[in-house]
């Protein structure tokens, strides 16, 4: 489960222009520039030394100044795991979709789009998945305050 720091350092050394290592010793992550994201993730999936064939988890976090995508990868044949992060602007957030690499990202990217408002370019079917189609906001954004009247039919009348 722990991040494999040596593996991270090896990948970072090979792709030093596209990636950097962030975080402290115990929790290290590979931060990838969004324009190289698909290239790096494709390499991580297909190269024999990495073989990250499973996208275990995909989510995003709103850090106010920027949005951060988090990808937790796992390799079934080599039994190792890695965490990849990528950042994009908080306004008009856009990210390349990783569905071309792991088709299983489909629902998870739709969820991130729905709740956090990141648009995934190249996604085959980018629609809201949990909120109603006519809903206009993205509830997991920090700026979103839950309250009455936001849903057709009223919704709750207490703030969360």
């Amino acid at each position: 489960m722990s991040n494999n720091n040596e593996l991270l350092a090896e990948i970072q050394a090979q792709y030093s222009r596209e990636t950097q290592i962030i975080g402290e010793d115990k929790q290290q992550f590979l931060l990838v520039e969004p324009e190289y994201l698909l290239k790096i993730l494709g390499i991580l999936k297909n190269y024999e030394a990495y073989q990250f064939d499973m996208l275990r988890n995909l989510t995003a976090v709103d850090y106010l100044e920027y949005m951060e995508m988090v990808y937790h990868l796992y390799s079934l044949p080599l039994r190792h795991s890695i965490t990849i992060k990528a950042r994009c602007a908080a306004e008009n957030s856009q990210m390349p979709s990783v569905t071309s690499i792991w088709p299983s990202a489909n629902f998870q990217e739709r969820e991130v789009y729905d709740l956090l408002g990141i648009t995934f370019t190249g996604h085959p079917d980018l629609r809201r998945i949990l909120m109603p189609a006519e809903f206009t906001e993205h509830p997991l954004r920090k700026s979103f305050k839950a309250g009455a009247g936001q849903l057709p039919g009223g919704g709750g009348n207490h703030s969360c």
């Binding site: 489960m1 989510t59 976090v61 988090v70 965490t83």
Partner: peptide, 20 residues
């Protein structure tokens, strides 16, 4: 301060929590 992902084998599959 930090973030962590941990997952367990639930009856329906991999249940993971990502906490920041």
């Amino acid at each position: 301060v930090g973030d962590v992902y941990h997952s367990i084998e639930n009856p329906r599959g991999e249940l993971g929590y990502y906490i920041v």
